[in-house]
């Protein structure tokens, strides 16, 4: 079985974001990067599937599009248990739209004939939620989004989609298929030290984005900015005890919950 998992490296979401010189995305100065959280669930599910194959030899490839820094995210996925990495080197990936990113991945995946492709349902930084579904369309395979449960029996995927209010939709798909993963699908493992050591020997192939796809953008970011402050709330700072006194006064003044 050939399995692909697509991951993105994103900045820590607790960071302060500053626009770049062109005002089209954030500047990367002073940001710490990590694997997109949704993708950690995708990697875990792919590894679980590989482990279930038993004697049937499987090939689990982890792929990321981006500049040199994304190799760190690939290494983490390899240390978690992926077999080999593919780095689509693209220094401008952050300025590309989801369609262009999906086209890059599709150009690579078309030659490899994967049975199943996992990815996160969205990235934490861009949040478009488009790449997985668009990739499936490009490859002509079926796709389920927002999976919180996954199984594969006799070539048929059964997945549960998370719907609003806690309901679930159950879907069966034939392979080849793309599955986009929601938080809570599984419990992503931490790489162990021996596996981190082993991962150092695993191959990471580098492909140049420009040689894979020359698709132009379908949507262009014209501006990147802080939201107009909608919150009109009071901002309090200081020592915990003094803050507690103030907050308690406000609760008594503005609500009825402590009366009677």
């Amino acid at each position: 079985m050939k399995i692909l998992v697509c991951i993105k490296q994103i900045p820590d979401m607790a960071s302060k974001f500053k626009p770049n010189a062109a005002n089209t995305w954030f500047t990367e100065t002073d940001l710490a990067f990590r694997m997109n959280e949704y993708d950690e669930y995708a990697v875990e599910e792919a590894i679980k599937l590989k482990e279930k194959q038993g004697a049937d030899p499987s090939d689990l490839v982890v792929l990321s599009v981006g500049p040199a820094r994304v190799v760190e995210a690939l290494k983490k996925a390899l240390a978690m248990g992926c077999d080999r990495g593919v780095h689509i080197h693209d220094d401008e990936s952050n300025l590309k739209d989801p369609w262009q990113i999906a086209s890059l991945i599709a150009a690579y995946a078309k030659k490899e004939n994967f049975d199943i492709i996992f990815t996160g349902m969205q990235s934490q930084d861009r949040g478009s939620g488009q790449v997985g579904v668009t990739l499936a369309g490009d490859l002509g395979c079926s796709c389920v989004t927002t999976a919180i449960n996954f199984s594969l029996e006799a070539g048929v995927v059964t997945a549960k989609r998370e719907l609003e209010g806690g309901a679930k939709g159950v879907v069966k798909l034939k392979l080849p298929a793309v599955v986009t993963c929601q938080l809570g699908l599984n419990t992503p493992r931490y790489p162990t030290l021996p596996n981190i050591m082993k991962a150092r020997k695993k191959e990471i192939a580098v492909l140049k984005a420009a040689e894979l796809s020359a698709e132009g953008p379908r949507a262009v970011t014209e501006k990147f900015y802080h939201p107009v402050k909608k919150g009109t709330g009071l901002v309090l700072e200081g020592e915990p005890a003094a803050l507690a006194v103030k907050v308690l006064e406000l609760i008594k003044e503005k609500t009825t919950v402590l009366r009677g």
Binding site: F17, G127, E222, F224, P227
Partner: peptide
Amino acid sequence: CCNGKMRRLVRPA
């Protein structure tokens, strides 16, 4: 974007 901390203005091409 960025977990709700930032905004983008997007023009369809």
